[in-house]
Nucleic acid binder design. Structure first.
Lengths: 109, 109
DNA sequence: TCCACACTTAAGCATTTGCCTAAGTATAAG
DNA sequence: CTTATACTTAGGCAAATGCTTAAGTGTGGA
């Protein structure tokens, strides 16, 4: 499974996106991360593991507290992939427009 | 299911991302879209339906040929969501940096 | 009219996801 | 030493995913 697979998969769940939103405001413990959600701690923990597997989040355990933080690099990879497709699409539209300007209703080549 | 759910879910699959990459280069029929993949046409068709459900792709049938095209608006929504988290995270780092400059090793408030 | 072509629908199946409860483990406070 | 805290692991289960093959439907060419 490529990293983009894991990253987009991680972002596809609303709970995990909310967790990323929380971590974008600042690092916190697993319990703090779980607090807003009406679900068991193991469920939150599993979401956290998917976020870590994707690279979107990293964490470190000190004593009995695991502190989680956002990892913007994985974020950028996903953002860049999307941006690239938009660029391709726009470049194609530009070429098409330029062509139509020279050959109105002409054959598409 | 929110639109972001469907969008990121759609982008989580490598086949669907490849389909988006193909469409970013220009519109094409379902068969053309299916051609690079070692899977049945119904399978490709199901992927296409997920891409349409997310809004990433739109299509129109003329005669017996369905032509698919990329829909950049849904793309932008996903890109914007990611970008926003990065912005939040960077703003937090900036505030932290400014604070540490005034209170080196000081209490975090 | 007949038939091939380009999808499209339906049904089935193995795997993955997203939760749960119960039962751990390790650290820190009393 | 005992207990509470903060995760962590394990097992189970219903629903969703990503395919498959088989059997349609509608269009257009011969």
């Amino acid at each position: 499974m490529s990293n983009l697979d894991l990253t987009f998969q991680a972002l596809a769940d609303p709970t995990r996106r909310a967790m990323v939103e929380r971590l974008a405001k600042g690092s916190c413990s697993v319990s703090e991360l779980a607090q807003p959600f009406a679900m068991s701690l193991p469920a939150v923990y599993q979401h956290l593991q998917m976020l870590e597997a994707s690279g979107l989040v990293a964490s470190e355990k000190i004593g009995r507290v695991r502190t989680c933080r956002m990892e913007p690099a994985a974020m950028s990879l996903a953002e860049t992939w999307i941006n690239r497709r938009r660029t391709d699409w726009e470049a194609r539209l530009d070429r098409l427009g330029a062509h139509l300007q020279r050959f109105p209703e002409g054959e598409p080549k």
